[in-house]
Design a protein around this nucleic acid. Structure first.
Lengths: 256, 256
DNA sequence: TCAAAAGTGTTGAGAGTACACCCATGA
DNA sequence: TCATGGGTGTACTCTCAACACTTTTGA
């Protein structure tokens, strides 16, 4: 199916395929080169950027729909994904704008079209392994790429607020849930993991205290190997202990 | 407007007044005689009970809609109200059942009617002063009353899960937010407030540690008076320091 | 006068924080 | 050999939990 056909289907059939006036937006976090990043889309018809989002099929739960959106954008399955808030401000929809945004070649929508209605949107955030993602475009977007958290471009509608709320939620969750596994590569060093935490929290942490704390959760396994090629003492490599990690996801973090 | 007319309007006009396939449910907590209570409705057409819920007007935010539902059921304005989760399981809707539930006198709905669709529901929880509430019926319900948390009757659809999730959220929030003000009367004693916390958490707390902790937040003001008429040392009366309380709501609880 | 429940204080364990010392590595 | 950054240990502080003693009240 061509992009045009896909788009035409969205315009024509959307109102019967999807739950009307309800959408979802995903804040997809990745981590690379000591930077926390967010996956953003640039729509063909707009100058500002957007969070990857989508609509909910009549026979899908929100969680399934979010996983589908994620899969479409990143190619990844089985991702850490959490609903965090539902956004319903009246100003968050802009029918006039929508009529422009969803115009393509000979296709036009009017104010009665389903896409020109007010939308309420359920926000999800996801944590993904940056190195395994190949950002993919959809029929409306011309660019799909990562942005550093400290240089986010102007976002459409209330997407900036959604992003901020996601980050706030993530920061709180950090205290209760193990979160590194989906963001880090298979093997990593303690300083690398620390950088992740520091970036999320936006504050520096004490190296030694961080190590003690994380190890106290017993969700890591230290490997024999060390990372070589660095101009100083070679740090140990760690991997997550998947079993323990899953337990901690269920029961929350606590000392042993 | 009679109940019948209200009902007829819901059936006939609902699809243009409200956002389709989206509803909200409120878990309304009250506290009385050392018991945490939840406000429940019994629909005329069903044997099980329901959380007070409603639909969202096209020009309302979720929060405004929830406040409206709350006002309709309790008569109260300006209530502590928090969105906590959006429920979208496929099994949570039951069109067959809906067709029966929304039948009244000569009115009938079929499977294409807006009320017989799948619904996604946004859950809110509210904390209200039990003594100020006069539960009010709507056009579909025959009873509206409080139930003790430990003797909740069978609830319709997934309302039991919604209630459980609300309670779980409330328990977590207890650590971050001051919550007594909306649940307690104007004046109360420390042991009374402690009972509230114990009931929410479902576990006994140490009297002395509790007092120290709560006072440490500086959100209470001790009055000169004591509660008299008790067969033991008369406890002090307290009230909330509204200014401090509001600050704590904004910034979270922390020691001074 | 006595049981019941409130007011107040102390102590110890554990978590979190701050900081010091030594070690390994490539330049 | 030296700057850089990692590995490990210790001491101090603060919070929280456990617990004891005294005071007030109506029965």
């Amino acid at each position: 199916m061509t992009e045009y056909e896909k788009f035409k289907q969205l315009i024509d059939k959307g109102s019967s395929l999807y739950i009307p006036q309800l959408s979802l937006d995903c804040v997809i976090f990745g981590f690379h080169q000591n930077q926390l990043k967010v996956l953003l889309l640039k729509m063909r018809t707009r100058h500002d950027w957007a969070l990857p989002g989508g609509f909910i099929h009549q026979d899908e739960t929100l969680e399934v729909a979010a996983a589908r959106v994620l899969k479409e954008r990143t190619g990844l399955d089985n991702i850490f994904l959490r609903q965090f808030h539902t956004f319903s401000a009246l100003e968050r929809s802009n029918p006039q704008q929508a009529m422009k945004d969803f115009a393509m070649e000979d296709l036009r929508i009017d104010q009665h079209h389903w896409l020109a209605q007010r939308f309420i949107s359920v926000g999800f955030y996801a944590l993904v392994d940056f190195t395994r993602v190949t950002p993919q475009l959809d029929e409306l977007s011309e660019i799909c790429t990562w942005y550093d958290l400290d240089s986010i471009p102007p976002l459409m509608l209330d997407h900036r607020q959604i992003l901020d709320k996601a980050l706030e939620t993530l920061r709180v969750q950090l205290n209760y849930q193990p979160i590194g596994m989906s963001l880090m590569p298979e093997l990593f060093t303690m300083p690398e993991l620390q950088k992740l935490y520091e970036t999320i929290l936006g504050t520096p942490l004490d190296r030694r205290n961080f190590q003690r704390k994380i190890l106290g959760y017993h969700i890591l396994r230290r490997r024999e190997e060390r990372r070589t090629g660095v101009a100083h003492k070679a740090p140990y490599l760690y991997s997550f202990d998947i079993k323990r990690y899953q337990e901690a996801l269920q029961e929350g973090l606590h000392k042993w």
